[in-house]
Design a protein around this nucleic acid. Structure first.
Lengths: 138, 138
DNA sequence: CATATTTTGCAACACTGTTGCAAAATGTAG
DNA sequence: CTACATTTTGCAACAGTGTTGCAAAATATG
């Protein structure tokens, strides 16, 4: 795990610091998306709020994580799969939010459908967020 | 217009006040979704920030408007079509955000596709937000 | 028109996210 | 391993967003 963390950071040309190691570890350990606040709590009081913001921003810039828009408008973050490169996300999976346990997950095996738009519109990115009841809760 | 506004408010069992009239008027006049901030500005200084929040919340509760989740996590609001009732939204249209002009619109004629989820997941609601270039900007 | 109810504006507050800057940590090259 | 340049961190301060309690004002009702 430790090796993998350092590997990811180096590949992204990020210097290896405590906060980046810790936060990346959280992502690797978690199988669901996390809000900024979750990360702040889980990382512990050792890290400043501002550092968490900056670390997440760095990870976003480097394509290590991606954001998930949610209907209640709380930003969540999740790891990108390895087909993402710096600045170029190739996320074509949908996101699922369980209304019971509140957990947000990437359903990597479910791809976003192609949406046919009216004449004149050009699609660049499609976000699909499904809410409902997850495997565990049903 | 004035008649329509009062009609909508009465049907939703909301008392007719200046702020509700004004804000509902803004929605009826606008063909794109508005952020809280936009509404605050457009409504003018006559209305308190808090009143705008409470008015939007009332409209949401009554199913007059709905929210649109955006990738940059700014909440936007748009009118519901008349097939929405109190607390029961039947929104099955997709949303479009233009990356050039920034305008968010409901594409009422484009319906959300059915997403087939893995075993165990139950869908309750599907949100589709497409980003790209709109008719006007292309 | 008088009264009960609802809504508004204000003040205060908590939370979220950003910026500038000095101190600390990291990377690099000898 | 050390010294130095560069990057990152923590802190303080701030702007923006959203919420709550309460008295005053507006609205609905009979």
């Amino acid at each position: 795990m430790e090796e993998q963390i350092i590997d990811v950071l180096k590949k992204s040309q990020l210097s290896v610091t405590d906060s980046r190691r810790k936060i990346l570890e959280l992502f690797l350990q978690s199988d669901s998306a996390m809000a900024h606040h979750d990360i702040e709590i889980k990382a512990g009081e050792k890290f400043d709020r501002v550092t968490v913001y900056r670390t997440l921003q760095a990870f976003l810039d480097k394509g290590i994580i991606h954001t998930i828009p949610t209907p209640d408008n709380s930003v969540k973050y999740a790891l990108c799969k390895d087909n993402c490169e710096q600045g170029h996300h190739h996320d074509d999976h949908i996101h699922f939010i369980c209304k019971i346990c509140g957990i947000t997950t990437c359903l990597d095996e479910v791809h976003v459908p192609e949406i046919k738009l009216p004449r004149g519109y050009k699609t660049q990115q499609t976000e699909v967020v499904v809410s409902g009841i997850c495997k565990e809760c049903s």
